[in-house]
Amino acid sequence: MSTAPDLTIAKAVNAGLRRAMEENPRVLLMGEDIGSLGGVYRVTEGLKADFGAHRVLDTPLAEAGIVGTAIGLALRGYRPVCEIQFDGFSFPAFNQITTQLAKMRNRTNGDVTVPVTIRIPYGGVIGSVEHHSESPEALFAHTAGLRILTPSNAQDAYWMTQQAISCEDPVIVFEPKRRYWLKGAVDVERPTADPFSAQVVRPGEDATVVAWGPLVPVALAAAQAAEEDGRSVEVIDLRSLSPIDFDTIEDSVRRTGRLVVAHEAPTFGGLGGEIAARLTERAFYSLEAPVLRVGAFHLPYPVAAVEDRYVPDLDRILEALDRSFAY
């Protein structure tokens, strides 16, 4: 890594956007407050000044309008990158994303592609008000035609931003907003891996924990704590939520025999269930215990004062590991 500055995830996304805009004049940014303000998280800071108001559009406050016009721009040959300000505001655009963006290529039998990128800061524990802390990834992963990435570190944030933009398919990038200030090395010459693959970020032998986005550091901390108790826990950063790299999980589970899936989204109907089912089918005879899920409760995301009780933390992951080892 000859050029490996330490960047926060927010700065890494910014650098990724900048590079994509430099390399392709058809790349446009669209969103609420992303221009002069630089976005509520300052992820797009400085880009309007450098690329102009015709490439960094401060849009009207209308999420369906943002995604809908992005689809039109893509049909005209542009590569729009939409910022949805907060996860909970993706729902006004849900119709455009699921009935139009996801299906346009299928509808036209491949005659048109809609290479739109949608950046959605997601996840909780930021001490905010309702609709600012949700993890709606399963709702989008259920829709064929979309791809979904979620970086957990600066290196992936830098590269996945560019890989999403250059992909011919629509890509949603869920950005772990509570980790925007997490610093890490960024190799600006080489991406880590295929963006649609999972990565083993900590090798282990006794159990596997799959996590993504904001829970990856929590899973790593849980693995560290488990090691102090004599358990060797492998941690996989899933990275891509559509498609999901089940092969990497299967390889791990065949070695460890135990699997815990952790996500911030509610357990019920979450991607953890899909992973549990798939891995049970693929590695039934390798499993020493049922696949266990760690997620949030079947409750609307609670108020800030109690959110730390709602979102899975290190102890909840350790508790699941204990249950797994008890079989």
Binding site: G68, G72, L73, L75, R76, Q100, D111
Partner: peptide, 26 residues
């Protein structure tokens, strides 16, 4: 659509309006 400069039918009504506007912005 590329042959006729006409997008395919929109069955969820209203969706096509921002598409046209975005295309026009382009």
């Amino acid at each position: 659509p590329s042959e006729h400069h006409m997008n395919v039918y929109s069955i969820v009504l209203g969706c096509q309006v921002p598409h046209a506007v975005g295309y026009a912005m382009g």
